[in-house]
Design a binder for these strands. Structure first.
Length: 689
DNA sequence: GCAATGAGCGTC
DNA sequence: ACGCTCATTGCT
């Protein structure tokens, strides 16, 4: 061995020898991962918000995390030299991507399979339906991880409950057939209009428990957390506390994730919650329910703005679960489901309706019964309403007073002396109708007053003010002195009131349930509801009235409703006759006539004019497609140029998917060329005008 | 004929 | 959000 060994020389000069220095024998490079032996390729949906990246990307699964890298788990991957979160959608044997380019998963965040394949498929379908991205829908569907909660020991799976007594559904001819279908595990779709006074949380709990008794899961989606609490209690009574989970955003992250995990792990069979619950990963769902689908809380304010009703329709179609679209009132969308035969209706007979409904009186501009009674004048209330309230209080029942939401429509006061501006006919508050050029009008009787003169100081100048629930409450309290006045609104929402006589002033959506029912309801916001220049104004007005009026005792027991609105209009007629189905039919026909959703599919695109124009130029318009606008939106800038504008795109329902796909494509083109302008694309937006 | 510079595209 | 590719431009 005469040739000098460089390593040996090195050893001599620098001692001691570093252990790692010996290059031979070749060994697997330290730290470099080896792909898993089976299904080494993971398809990952990465959390990048760009439309052109809305697909899976392939990564190699290191054999060290083979067991954790389960389908549906959260992972972290290097994506364009950045670490991003993602969901493992699928594991496959090989990738079509150049093997040189494949990277390893950086890390499995947790082995919890939070994205069930059924839910992944649903989220993909919802994204496609709305022209949005899957990752945006996943963000709505899957709550943020809470590591400590995830580490907790999961409870036992709740036992299968006993089938509930179906007697509560006997008042609805097709009700028991629907329960039969659930019991037999048959797919059924239905649109249900609850009778006024119906204990609907109990009915929905029976639906859920019927599915659970058949060994399936149930998903119940309601507008707000008060409804969650009521339906949750009703479900617990039938199926036991362990079988039911309530989900709503106001629980806080830990509680919310604990409940959600209980559903995900199959512990709970019934889940009730607000809109995100539509995606809850219940095992083998047998029935999906949305209550009061007209409530705008069911529409998610985050992109791609999916609506619970649509999410559940998709889910029912994909999973084979039954679907129930329910409420006191009926939307045009539900009417379309019913008329098309896809979801037959469950409605009571007219005899049942007559027996259950309160007696409804409408007071409008052409009625003569306004404010004759001096006491009624004090309360700024027509005498019919005053009498109804007094009768209820005397009989020992509470009275519900529905008032416009604060700031909903501004009222007016005298500019000079601040006296509230009053209607000359009925002494109701004057307000400014939506739209600029219109004269002031009475919020109760809708009489217009173009020549206002202050009763107190004679000034002709008006100033906007707000008469909210509190003010109304004070004035009613004075008119009915001796009875307590309670308010329920944005500041503090009451869930229930007891059966003692009292005045309960509430804004729409915040009406407390009265033990034993209200003796009367005064619906004072008719003008505000129906006067809006909105496509849905009449549907929404009727929905709010019916929601309030359904809390009133039947007419046979003295229950009365007085609505301050023109009695000849369709929604008022529908309320008086308690016929939401008729109203929805008229409404749907009108929308078909005008070419509005749901008779057609519509999309809105809004943003800076240049961005809107560019998107429209890139948009491959499907057959039957038609662009309306764009029109300016909001206030113009100093030069009179529109800062934002909005275009509407209309297609036949048959081409709705194509429109969504075209919009997704156009968005992908935008994000690929890094167009920075904020652009909002909405399918079937709630507000069209 | 070739390096320096910039826009556009892809991200596994 | 970053780097890579490719085209264009300016200079020899």
């Amino acid at each position: 061995m005469s040739a000098p060994d460089p390593d040996a020389l090195f050893d001599v000069e620098v001692a001691p020898a570093p252990v790692e220095a010996a290059p031979a024998p070749p060994r697997p490079a330290k730290g470099r991962p080896v792909p898993a032996a089976t299904l080494p390729v993971a398809r990952v949906q990465v959390d990048a918000p760009l439309a052109h990246l809305d697909r899976t990307f392939d990564y190699l699964v290191p054999d060290k995390v083979d067991a954790e890298a389960v389908v549906g788990c959260r992972v972290r991957v290097r994506f364009s030299r950045q670490l991003v979160d993602g969901f493992l959608i699928e594991r496959v044997e090989r990738s079509d991507v150049d093997p040189q380019k494949l990277l390893f998963l950086d890390r499995v965040v947790s082995a919890e399979p939070v994205l069930a394949p059924e839910v992944a498929e649903l989220c993909r379908a919802v994204a496609d339906r709305y022209g949005g991205t899957m990752i945006d829908v996943l963000r709505l569907a899957i709550p943020p991880r809470h590591a400590r909660v995830e580490a907790e020991e999961p409870p036992e799976r709740a036992p299968v409950p006993e089938p509930p007594d179906p007697a509560g559904w006997a008042r609805y001819p097709r009700g028991s057939a629907f329960l039969d279908a659930l019991r037999a595990g048959r797919q059924a779709h239905a649109v249900w209009q609850a009778l006024p006074g119906e204990d609907w949380p109990a009915r929905l709990a029976e639906v859920a428990a019927t599915a659970a008794a058949a060994g399936r899961g149930a998903v119940l989606v309601v507008p707000d957390h008060r409804d969650v609490a009521r339906v949750h209690a009703a479900c617990v009574a039938l199926a036991g506390a362990d079988a039911v989970v309530a989900l709503s955003a106001d629980l806080g992250p830990a509680k919310r994730y604990r409940g959600w995990l209980a559903v995900c792990r199959g512990v709970a069979r019934i889940v009730v919650g607000t809109r995100a619950t539509a995606y809850a990963p219940v095992a083998d769902p047998g029935v999906l329910v949305v209550w009061d689908d007209g409530d705008d809380q069911h529409s998610d304010p985050r992109s791609p703005y999916p609506h619970v009703r649509d999410v559940l329709i998709q889910r029912a179609t994909l999973s084979g679960a039954a679907l129930l679209v329910a409420g006191f009132a009926r939307t045009a969308e539900a009417q379309l489901l019913s008329e098309s035969g896809w979801a037959p209706q469950i409605v009571a007979t007219r005899d049942q309706v007559r027996a259950a409904a309160p007696r409804v009186t409408a007071i409008g501009e052409h009625d003569s019964q306004l404010a004759r009674d001096p006491a009624a004048r004090t309360a700024r209330i027509p005498s019919v309403a005053f009498e109804a309230a007094r009768a209820s209080l005397t009989a020992g029942h509470p009275v519900l007073v529905q008032v416009p939401r604060r700031g909903y429509v501004p009222s007016l006061t005298c500019q000079d002396c601040r006296t509230p501006a009053r209607c000359r006919r009925c002494a109701g508050p004057l307000g400014l109708p939506a739209g600029d050029a219109k004269p002031p009008a009475c919020r109760w009787c809708a009489a217009t007053d173009a020549n206002f003169r202050c009763q107190h100081c004679g000034s002709r100048k008006l100033r906007a003010a707000v008469i909210g629930a509190r003010r109304t409450a004070e004035e009613l309290g004075r008119a009915f002195s001796g009875f307590p006045v309670r308010t329920s609104g944005a500041a503090e929402v009451l869930s229930t009131v007891d059966s003692k006589p009292a005045l309960v002033v509430a804004t729409p959506g915040a009406e407390p349930v009265a033990d034993g029912g209200y003796g009367a309801a005064l619906l004072l916001d008719g003008w505000a509801l129906l006067g809006r220049a909105d496509l849905r104004a009449s549907e929404e007005g009727l929905r709010r009235w019916m929601t309030a009026a359904a809390l009133v005792r039947p007419g046979g027991q003295g229950g009365r409703v007085v609505v301050l609105a023109e009695s000849a209009t369709t929604p008022v007629q529908a309320l008086v006759r308690w016929d939401p189905v008729w109203h929805a039919g008229v409404e749907l026909a009108a929308r078909a006539e005008l070419g509005f959703p749901p008779a057609v599919r519509m999309a809105s695109v809004d943003g800076p004019p240049s961005a809107v124009d560019r998107l429209l130029a890139d948009l491959p318009l499907p057959p039957s497609g038609e662009v309306l606008g764009p029109v300016p939106l909001g206030e113009p800038d100093a030069d009179g140029q529109a800062v934002r504008e909005r275009a509407l795109i209309r297609v036949d329902r048959a081409h709705g998917r194509a429109l969504a796909a075209a919009l997704a494509h156009a968005q992908a083109v935008r994000t690929a060329r890094k167009d920075p302008d904020p652009l909002r694309v909405q399918l079937d937006p709630l507000e069209l005008i």
